[in-house]
């Protein structure tokens, strides 16, 4: 086989794979949904106190997960292309368990409670990094870095547990929401 033909074939295979990957990209939706849920959690803390999050997140998080699952499944059916879902579901479950554990362990009696506010954000940042790897997305990797930096910044800010939770909820929620909306605008109807 001629090496020019081999190079051309590899180029074409790469193009086809990139197009399929690009068609599957729809991470704007979970970013918008969980961005909104995170922003609302700040209001929940403001009205009902930090303890209310123990009830808020299981309900809102599950609803967000179900909504995202429904959207992805509906979109894939319309598109005619189904992505590898198992790794995404496993990552989402790991983030949920990790964030709940980090929040619970960080809020043990005797502690400042700050770890309970910062820990879940760090877990979410790590989860987004895994999603970025799965999607081969620099946008998601950048968002993970921003969330991690925000969590570290708040950890050293000297804020109390509840203000730290509110600040992190507002900043990470807004970052997710804006990233999701920007990605949706960039990808247009395909997203």
């Amino acid at each position: 086989m001629d090496h020019h033909l081999a190079a051309e074939t590899l180029q074409r295979v790469g193009d086809v794979r990139r197009r399929a990957r690009s068609d599957l990209l729809a991470f704007w939706f979970p970013l918008v949904v969980f961005g909104c849920i995170t922003l609302v959690s700040a209001a929940v803390v403001g009205f009902f106190g930090g303890e209310a999050l123990a009830f808020y997140w299981p309900i809102a998080g599950t609803a967000g997960g179900v909504l995202t699952g429904y959207y992805c499944s509906h979109r894939e059916r319309l598109l005619g292309l189904k992505g590898p879902a198992a790794a995404y579901v496993a990552t989402a479950v790991a983030i949920t368990i990790g964030a709940v554990l980090a929040g619970g362990l960080g809020s043990q009696p005797g502690g400042s409670g700050l770890a309970g506010a910062v820990g879940p954000s760090m877990v979410v940042a790590a989860g987004y990094l895994v999603f970025a790897r799965l999607e081969r997305s620099t946008t998601l990797a950048a968002l993970a870095a921003v969330i991690f930096a925000l969590a570290v910044g708040v950890a050293f800010s000297g804020l109390g547990a509840e203000p730290a939770t509110v600040v992190l909820a507002l900043t990470t929620g807004a970052a997710s929401l804006l990233t999701g909306m920007a990605h949706r605008l960039r990808t247009g109807a395909r997203g």
């Binding site: 086809v16 794979r17 599957l24 005619g80 292309l81 992505g83 590898p84």
Partner: peptide, 21 residues
């Protein structure tokens, strides 16, 4: 090769997607 390239990225693809892409 093109068909397997698409299918290597996805769990499954429908006939119309493969035909059009």
């Amino acid at each position: 090769l093109g068909l397997l390239a698409v299918l290597s990225e996805a769990r499954r693809a429908d006939f119309a997607y493969l035909r059009d892409s």
